Simulated assay, not measured.
Amino acid sequence: MKLTIIIFLCCLVLSAAYSESPLRLHDLAARNGPQLPAVSSNSAVSSSTKTASSSRSSITSTATMTASASTVSSSISVDPRSPPGGVSMITPAITASETYIKVGEYATFSWNYTSLSVTPSAVNVEAYCSINKYYYPIAENLTVKDTQVVWNTSGYQETASIPLLVAEYTLYIYDASSNPSAVASPGYLAPYNNLVFGVYTPQPYTPLNSYQCATCSASFSLIGRNVLRGTLAMSLISCLFTILFMMR
């Protein structure tokens, strides 16, 4: 009997001991608050290394972009005292007194560039007519190596929506990225417009007895006939007076 009581008391003591341990751990956790997981020193060093590497990469990229922009800027730098680029005509010669182009034939234009520091990516060649204010295309998107064009006036006239007029034209050679009336900067191609030429259309043959002068005036012809008659009459009177004087 005594042995049974002793065993029962031991069980109670053990049960009380195990039940108090979780409570004490729970109370300790409540007093200290939630605990964050510790960060190892290796992770901190790795993070710092990544940040430093990113900073160096950003600095290197910025320096590269700045150097690249500086290179591009310096590659197109032109002395502001330099004159604009120009065109020197070879065919037809600018010294020629008059130049005429007959519709139906081929017209050749050739030239050289002068004082050109910045090469245009493309050049247009056009003929401007002041009567209808129209730029007739001769050649488009030429390179600076292409310094001669041959204009097929017959082929153009057959397919053109705006046909060539019998009139005077001004030849324009200019940078395709600009316009014919632009003011060029130093070293850049200035629009050329110093060549004036005439364009005419040949007329069909007309017999002389059927020809009528389009620029002649009927009133002028009448005056001319009257003057001729007066001149003949005065000549005849002069002759009569001369004969009478000689007969005396």
Rank of each mutant, 00 (worst) to 15 (best):
K2R: 14
T4N: 02
T4S: 04
I6V: 10
F8A: 13
C10E: 00
V13W: 03
L14Q: 03
A16D: 03
S19V: 02
E20W: 08
R24H: 12
H26T: 05
D27K: 11
P37K: 09
S40Q: 09
N42V: 07
V45M: 11
V45P: 05
V45S: 08
V45N: 13
T51I: 09
R56A: 08
R56V: 10
S57T: 15
S58M: 08
T60Y: 03
S61W: 07
T66Y: 10
S70T: 06
T71K: 06
T71Q: 10
S75D: 02
S75G: 02
S77Y: 13
D79I: 05
P80D: 04
P80V: 04
P80E: 04
R81E: 05
S82C: 14
S82L: 15
P84S: 13
P84V: 02
S88T: 14
M89I: 00
I90A: 00
T91N: 11
A93H: 15
A93E: 14
A93P: 10
I94L: 06
T95K: 13
T99N: 04
T99G: 12
T99D: 02
T99C: 06
K102G: 15
K102P: 01
K102S: 13
V103I: 03
V103K: 05
G104N: 07
T108V: 12
S110G: 10
N112E: 06
N112G: 11
Y113L: 06
L116M: 06
L116D: 03
P120W: 02
P120C: 01
S121T: 10
E126L: 08
A127L: 14
K133P: 08
Y135F: 13
Y136W: 00
I138V: 02
L142K: 00
T143L: 03
D146I: 10
T147D: 01
Q148A: 12
Q148T: 12
N152P: 14
N152R: 15
T153M: 03
T153G: 04
E158T: 09
L164R: 12
A167P: 10
A167C: 14
E168Q: 09
E168K: 13
Y169H: 10
T170L: 14
L171N: 10
Y172F: 08
A176K: 11
S177P: 03
S178Y: 04
N179Q: 13
S181D: 06
A182H: 14
P186D: 02
Y188D: 03
Y188V: 06
Y188I: 01
A190I: 02
V199P: 00
V199Q: 00
P202G: 01
T206E: 03
T206Y: 02
Y211Q: 15
Q212T: 06
C213L: 13
N226H: 13
V227P: 06
A233I: 15
I237V: 07
I237C: 10
M246N: 04
M247H: 04
R248S: 11
